[in-house]
Design a protein around this nucleic acid. Structure first.
Lengths: 237, 237
DNA sequence: TCTAGCCAACTAACATGTCAGTTGCGTTCG
DNA sequence: CGAACGCAACTGACATGTTAGTTGGCTAGA
C-alpha cells in the first residue's frame, strides 16, 4: 500500500502533472512525513513511471518549499518550519485581502452563485464525521474567491501558502477549530462581497487567519521530529 | 551573437540555475521578443548544454508566466498581457505593502544600513546615461526590502510579479519616469521604515506603483505584436 | 483551381544512460 | 581502541535516446 493515490491508467492527461499533484497531495496530507527522505528513482518506481516526470514534480515542489533537494545527496520532505508557516500566513493574508477587495469591486454574479453553492455543500459536509470532504470544499472555496476576483495569479500564491498552513491543520485535525466557526466566516466573506462591503469582507477574512498561530507551539512540542530545527541542516537525524 | 549572456565556463555552479537565470534575463530585458518561438533543443544548442537543464528552466519560466509551453507543439515567450501586468501589480502591491509593514516592525539595523548604501549607489547610477546599472540597483533595493522584513517568500513573489512589470518598463525605457522621482520614493520608504512609521512607508510605496498603468495603452498601440490579444491563441501569427 | 490525404520535419513528453559528488561502512594501520 | 583510508551504494545533475502529437507543405485526384 503506497502513500500515493494511484494514477488513473485510462486518463489521457500527461503523466507529469498527475504525478505532481499526487506527490503534493501526499505531502500536504502528511502521508509523506515531514523530514522523510524521498528519491526520484524510488518514487518513479512506485508510480510505474520514469524518473523524468518525477524530477519535474520535484523541481516544482522544491520551489513551493515542500521539498528540500540537496544536490547529489538526496531529497527530503520539508519539515514543518514555524517561520515558514507564519510567513506563508503573512503572504496569504495580504494576497487574499487584495483578492477579496477586488471581488467586492467586481461582484460577478456567476462566481457569487458558485460560492453560494459551495457554502451549501460545506454545511452538508460539516455534518459528516470524516473531515476530508469539508477540507476539499474549503480549498474550492478559496479558489472560487480568486476566481471571483478574476485573479488567477493570486490563487497560485494562495495555494502555495495554504499548503504550508494545511500541513499544520492536518496535524491538529482531532482538536481542530469547530467547522461551524469557519463556515460562519466563509458566509460573512461572501455576504460582504455580495454587498460590495469591503470592510466587512476584510474583517471576516482576517478572523479566518487567527486560529493557526495558537496551535503551533503545542504541536511543535508534541511532534518535535516533524518540525524544522533552527540549527542543524545535516541530512542525518 | 546570441541573445543570451554566455555562461562562465569556469563556474563551479550547476548548469541548470545558470541557464535559468540567463533565459529569464533575456526575456525580461526583451532580448527575447514577446511572442517569439523558442525550442528546448535550439536553446540548449546555443548554450552548448543538453536539453535537460533547459527543460527545467522552461518549467520554471512557464510557472512564472514568462513562457507558454504548448505540449508537442512548441514554446513561445509570453506576449505582454495587459491583464497579467495589472494583476501582477495588484499582487505586488499587496505583498510589498505587507513586507514594508513588517520591515517597519523589525527595523533591522544591518538591513537598513544595506538599504542606505544601496540608495547612495542609486544616486550615482542615476547620473549615468546607461540605465542598466540603475535597474540592477532597483532590483537589489526591493530584494533588500524583503530581507529587511525577513520574508524570503515575499521576495520570490515580488520577483515574479516584477518580471512582468519590468518588461513594460524596458519597452518604455526612452520616455521612462525620471529616475529622480523613483529615488525620492525609495528614500521615503527607507525613511519610513527607519522611523518605524508604517503609514509613511506605505504611502511612499504606493506612489511607486502609479506610473506603469498610464504608459500601457500607448505602448500597446505602438507595439501591437508584443501584446497578447484577448482572443486567438493559435501558434501562428 | 481546389481539396484531401500523405509525409517529412518539427515539437515537448517521456524514458533511460552516464557521471560526479556524497555517504556510510568496513578494513587496515597506527 | 581510534583514526584514516578505500570502496560500494546511493543520490540528483546532466546527457541523450525514443515516442506521440502537431504542423505545414507537397502531391494526387477531382
Amino acid at each position: 500500500m503506497s502513500v500515493f493515490l494511484p494514477l488513473d491508467p485510462f486518463s489521457t492527461e500527461a503523466i507529469g502533472p498527475r504525478v505532481y499533484r499526487a506527490i503534493r497531495e501526499a505531502i500536504v496530507c502528511l502521508r509523506l512525513t515531514p523530514g522523510q527522505i524521498v528519491s526520484e528513482a524510488e518514487v518513479a518506481r512506485q508510480f510505474g513511471a520514469s524518473r523524468q516526470p518525477v524530477h519535474d514534480a520535484f523541481v516544482r515542489l522544491e520551489l513551493s518549499g515542500l521539498l528540500h533537494v540537496l544536490p547529489q545527496r538526496g531529497t527530503r520532505v520539508a519539515r514543518i518550519s514555524p517561520k515558514d508557516v507564519r510567513d506563508a500566513q503573512v503572504i496569504r493574508r495580504a494576497v487574499e485581502a487584495a483578492t477579496v477587495e477586488r471581488a467586492c469591486a467586481l461582484r460577478r454574479p456567476e462566481s457569487l452563485a458558485a460560492l453560494a453553492l459551495n457554502l451549501e455543500r460545506q454545511a452538508i459536509a460539516a455534518a459528516e464525521p470524516e473531515p476530508h470532504a469539508f477540507l476539499k470544499l474549503d480549498e474550492e472555496f478559496h479558489r472560487l474567491l480568486a476566481e471571483c476576483a478574476d485573479l488567477p495569479m493570486a490563487w497560485a500564491i494562495i495555494e502555495d501558502a495554504k499548503s504550508h498552513m494545511d500541513r499544520v491543520r492536518f496535524l491538529s485535525l482531532p482538536q481542530t477549530t469547530p467547522l461551524a466557526a469557519l463556515i460562519r466566516q466563509h458566509k460573512a466573506i461572501v455576504a460582504g462581497i455580495a454587498a460590495g462591503d469591503w470592510a466587512a469582507a476584510r474583517e471576516a477574512l482576517s478572523e479566518h487567519f487567527c486560529e493557526l498561530d495558537k496551535s503551533l507551539p503545542a504541536l511543535e512540542a508534541k511532534y518535535p521530529d516533524l518540525f524544522e530545527r533552527d540549527d542543524a541542516r545535516a541530512l542525518g537525524r
